[in-house]
Amino acid sequence: MGAASRFIFRRRGGKGWHWTDIVTWVWLVGGLLIMFGPAVWLGFSSFKSPAALAEFPPTILPYVTQQVNVEGYEQPLALYEASLPDGSTQVLAEVRRIGIVSQMVDPNAPGEIIRVNIGDRTPVRTMSFATENYTEPFVQFDFVQYLWNSVFVTVTATLITLVVNSMAAFALSKYEFKGRSVAMLIILATLMVPLSVIMVPLYSIISAIGLFNNLWGVILPTVATPTGVFILRQYMLTIPDELIDAARMDKASEWQIYWRIVLPLAAPALAVLAIFSVVWRWNDFLWPLIVLSRRELYTLQVGLSIYAGELNVQWHFILAMTVVTMIPVVLVFIFLQRFITTGIAGTGLK
């Protein structure tokens, strides 16, 4: 207790509580709840059976009412702990409910029906993780396909982005040539061109070149990101030109200079771009929604949103698939968060 409370109640200057200390801790603890709470709640909910999800008030952990097969009854019966008129309690199975009276039997002696007021019985519950929420969408629905599509789009787009952007950044940072400033200007000016502004003509171009309903139609428009070129160029500018000269004196071809000298030295920036790109492409929604109209091509984001938009909302599956969709990003967050936050703070990019 000592160390923990000293840590938690550490105060500014150590002389009594300043109001700002209280604000700070309220803000931080409140932030912790508000920022992580919803995702954690989602995670717990995703393990609940449909019946448990429909419960109000909800429980945090997934509980289910225990059921038992009783001789003479086709369906499994729910188990309750019932207070009997004689004051004792006994675990009984409910056969049916009529009004406020529950007809129950002893699972071990199913012959005799015991009537219990519903106020006098409480369900016997155990914790149970409804893992079928996860397995069924994969088995019965197309979620395996969606997952694969998402992985394919993310990995391919990221690889192409890295290659194409780093080549362009190399040209723009280490060569003097005609048109360089024009290219730079175009890239800077289009840093902010959002999809919403060009989605109609872009769609027509994609369908004109036959990439409608094709994962490449999702991938290609995203790979030439001005942002990526910009990050990499800024970084490559810090690589000394003398290294390039030295490599030229060492008989390296320009291509060798690119991949043997510049790429390894730009590794930190490439890593940042790779992480960004993975998160961007994994999370992309509107563009895949426009380009992909066949179920077997959906990415996770599209599949999930369409599935959630259907009339008969099956929350137990949706919650589980949302967790699956969240996992890569959460992994990125856990392991690479520091990388990203310093990257953003350094470049102002998201």
Partner: peptide, 30 residues
């Protein structure tokens, strides 16, 4: 590359991601 000259740069321009041995060998490998 083809003039047959070698240069020592002010900043030395050693390839930071290569070992000394690789630095020395790079030009010869090329």
């Amino acid at each position: 590359a083809e003039r047959g000259l070698a240069m020592v740069f002010q900043s030395y321009a050693l390839y930071p991601h290569m070992t000394v041995r690789q630095n020395l060998a790079f030009g010869l490998e090329n």
